[in-house]
Write a protein that binds this DNA or RNA. Structure first.
Lengths: 211, 211
DNA sequence: TAGATTGTTAATCGATTAACAATC
DNA sequence: TAGATTGTTAATCGATTAACAATC
């Protein structure tokens, strides 16, 4: 679709642009220049223009960018114009927290199933979704056309579950387990390593009080 | 303490080194060369040596790195040799999930308190920690020498709570709320924007099947 | 038309990788 | 000592910023 490969540095910034544009839109702002947006978001105007131009010209010289149009276009680039079907594997506190977070649904990320290895949890309802036993995993993925698997289980079982997901042809894994997954290039992985994040914070606390 | 400023790119990699070294240590591996570690972690040996040398020479020519020593040293660099006292603001699913995650405690991140604006939740126990009303926030931070505030509340109230935390002299905020906090430079912020992460995944799904 | 602001090229900066001398 | 591997400098690569011509 796109001619040039977009770097992950750019991709990482897109959701933030999307968020700011959504807020501007809600406030009824019609147009914005890269300079105004720069001031608001605390990034350089140059970077904003470079980033947007990776995907084609969204602006107009002398005018700036139309907020609503730009918002919609970035949404499309992020793939938010189509729905995704998710399953959560690991119905512990974190898995349930994600299952209960309605905002993902709003954006087209539909939570279709919830799985857990613990037989005690089987049948438990989390927001109208029953927790299913792991044996039903493969069948459920195929029957429901699941494209994203969310891994919210301890690291020990995660590699094996990841392999099962890959074998079923899952497209992407949102990985909260504290290990690096080994999957083919065709499967996208996005890691959320909470303890890594907390350690970074710890580092920055220690090193902030320097002269 | 350190002479040169360490870039956040390097800091971001430290927890991952720490994790791999911890695993090697547990497996009883005594020493490792940058080349072996390179193969294991899938980063260049050059980068590993550069990264470590930001903090001084941890290795020995012709030998490599002592796993246990390196593990300990990186732990110190990350500030894991001291304990941190946390409070969680927002006792919803996500706040409770974090409160229940024992691994943080293992690393010296002690969850001392849990706060919520909802009076219905006040008094509820989460792993022996009672949920407190927001009015007690300032007093509790000072009395318990809290250094990290965890924000697991919806974005609407987050800016106001962040201001209150800053006024109490909190050192750091671990921010799960979906907005950018405006705090002085002396206060460290680490953002975990789950929906940003999910959008990145969505982007990569859409753009993976290209030739 | 004149002014504003983009799209885009060029310059700079920083991070990563390669190379190799130092040294265990 | 010879071999291995670090620590560190130099080269490369990529990302960010600056500048400005194009154009609305």
């Amino acid at each position: 679709m796109e001619a040039k490969e977009i770097s992950q540095a750019v991709v990482s910034r897109l959701p933030r642009y999307f968020r700011y544009l959504g807020e501007l839109k809600d406030e009824g702002v019609e147009r914005i220049s890269s300079q105004e947006l720069s001031k608001l978001m605390r990034v350089t105007a140059s970077q904003i223009r470079q980033d947007f131009n990776n995907f084609g010209g969204f602006g107009q010289q002398g005018y700036g960018y139309n907020v609503e149009y730009l918002y919609t276009e970035i949404g499309k680039i992020l793939g938010l114009d189509q729905t995704h079907r998710l399953i959560i594997i690991g119905a512990g506190h974190l898995g349930q927290a994600i299952a209960n977070y309605m905002n993902f649904e709003r954006r087209g990320f539909l939570i279709k199933g919830l799985f857990d290895a613990d037989p005690e949890l089987a049948g438990k309802m989390v927001r109208q979704i029953p927790v299913r036993p792991m044996e039903e995993l493969e069948q459920f993925i195929q029957a429901n056309n699941i494209d994203i698997g969310v891994l919210t289980i301890p690291k020990d079982g995660a590699a094996a579950v990841s392999d099962r997901l890959v074998k079923c042809g899952i497209k992407a894994i949102w990985n909260f387990a504290h290990l690096d997954l080994d999957v083919p290039d065709s499967v996208q992985v996005e890691n959320v390593h909470l303890s890594d994040s907390l350690m970074k914070l710890s580092y920055n606390i220690r090193n902030s009080s320097e002269s």
